[in-house]
């Protein structure tokens, strides 16, 4: 079997369809592994991974950490809140100091787009992007597509709508790349202020009417409104946003068809998604979380496989 074509996972943009299929096939294996009585395999026992989180994260960080532990890697964790970054150390200095402790792989989340790429060009370790600003969040897109494949059999030909704050979302961009590469049809839906102007050039449809988008789709991926990235007002009020773009049971019942509901988390309950929808049988939000561990194990296994001893 051929190795994955990249040295680092910086974004879905750099992957080809074969890579994605390879990741999915390995993730199938790891999903079986994490459902065994003993959920651990020794593959990465001689690999040390540093998790560098320069931006808050709960799910992604735990998911990566669990994936590393399931693969028997040694790990060190770092979050910017409690570090010398606050004292003014540069990114390269921070990372090089950590690499001096003989680290083979770096999983990094950073508030600036391109941080992962910058690191991959300047330090000697495998870089896995766990989210860089509003740019990419490749493992999230992979686990989303993996979950669609698991639920609907395949991704090809499926209609997926991404709803909400597209402008500030790295999840949206990575999802668009990933779904397009796998042959899905993609639509984005949200208020005009939260949809980038030229997003149509990526080959996605744009729709501002939620009900029309829902009628069209097989899968709805609801995004969180990223209040922390919004420095100006993009819509008049949260209440108005909920009325226009919040998904609730009533709107779902009007569809007269079943669609799959996804959310990358964390959910603003009652904003983009009402509780009865988030907890309904249409939602695969918790499956996404489980698949996240398997997909991240697959990514790190495949990248580590190329690391020469």
């Amino acid at each position: 079997m051929d190795q994955i074509s990249v040295q680092h996972l910086l974004g879905i943009k750099d992957l080809n369809k074969k890579d994605i299929d390879l990741i999915f096939s390995a993730a199938d294996n790891f999903k079986e592994v994490i459902n065994r009585p003993i959920k651990k395999v020794p593959s990465l026992r001689d690999i040390t991974v540093a998790n560098l989180f320069f931006e808050n994260s709960t799910r992604t960080k735990l998911s990566f950490e669990l994936a590393q532990k399931r693969l028997s890697a040694d790990i060190i964790n770092f979050s910017s809140g409690s570090s010398s970054v606050k004292k003014g150390e540069t990114l390269i200095d921070t990372v090089n100091n950590i690499l001096a402790m003989k680290v083979d792989m770096v999983v990094m989340r950073h508030p600036n787009a391109g941080a992962a790429k910058f690191l991959s060009e300047n330090v000697n370790a495998v870089i896995v992007n766990a989210g860089d600003g509003a740019h990419e969040h490749p493992t999230q897109a992979l686990l989303d597509a993996f979950s669609i494949r698991e639920k609907l059999g395949e991704v090809k030909g499926k209609k997926v709508v991404i709803i909400g704050d597209i402008l500030h979302s790295r999840v949206a961009l990575s999802n668009i790349f990933c779904l397009k590469k796998l042959g899905a049809e993609v639509m984005v839906c949200g208020p005009a202020t939260l949809i980038p102007k030229f997003i149509g050039e990526l080959g996605v449809k744009v729709e501002h009417d939620l009900m029309k988008a829902l009628q069209w789709c097989d899968v709805a991926n609801m995004l969180r409104i990223q209040f922390e990235r919004q420095d100006t007002k993009f819509f008049p009020s949260v209440r108005e946003y909920i009325m226009m773009y919040g998904l609730n049971k009533e709107k779902l019942d009007q569809l007269k068809k079943n669609i799959v509901i996804m959310h990358p988390g964390p959910i603003n309950r009652g904003v983009e998604l009402s509780s009865d929808v988030a907890d309904s049988e249409h939602s695969i939000i918790l499956e996404q979380v489980e698949n996240g561990v398997a997909v991240r194990m697959a990514v790190m296994y495949l990248l580590a496989s190329k690391l020469k001893r």
Partner: peptide
Amino acid sequence: FFRDDFRRTEKLLL
């Protein structure tokens, strides 16, 4: 995943 030749062959072990 229990093999002892991971990262020692050119081939990917799947």
